[in-house]
């Protein structure tokens, strides 16, 4: 029957882990600004698409350079 002790210990330590994670996130200031990240996460694509284009252009230039040689 003493398995109940093990179960309790596990359940409480899991809970404590989450609690620690919560305290950590508050301390890091993750709750100071709860709006901007929600907008920010939608941006990554534009930037990638944009730099892709740049990289693409550069490649093109390189290609033309090499054919010229």
């Amino acid at each position: 029957m003493s398995v109940i002790y093990v179960l309790l210990a596990i359940s409480i330590s899991v809970a404590l882990c989450f609690f620690a994670a919560f305290v950590f996130s508050v301390k890091k200031g993750q709750y100071d600004d709860v709006y901007t990240p929600s907008v920010r996460m939608l941006f990554e694509d534009e930037l990638l698409k944009d730099s892709d284009k740049h990289a693409h252009n550069k490649e093109k230039i390189k290609q033309t350079e090499s054919t010229n040689q």
């Binding site: 100071d32 920010r40 941006f43 534009e46």
Partner: peptide, 25 residues
């Protein structure tokens, strides 16, 4: 949101800028 986007990409305007982070509220 456009403001946030452009202000967080300031490094494209000048290479000396390494990180820029906006706090909208």
């Amino acid at each position: 949101s456009s403001c946030i986007w452009v202000l967080e990409n300031l490094n494209r305007l000048h290479s000396a800028i390494t990180v820029s982070q906006a706090d909208f509220p």
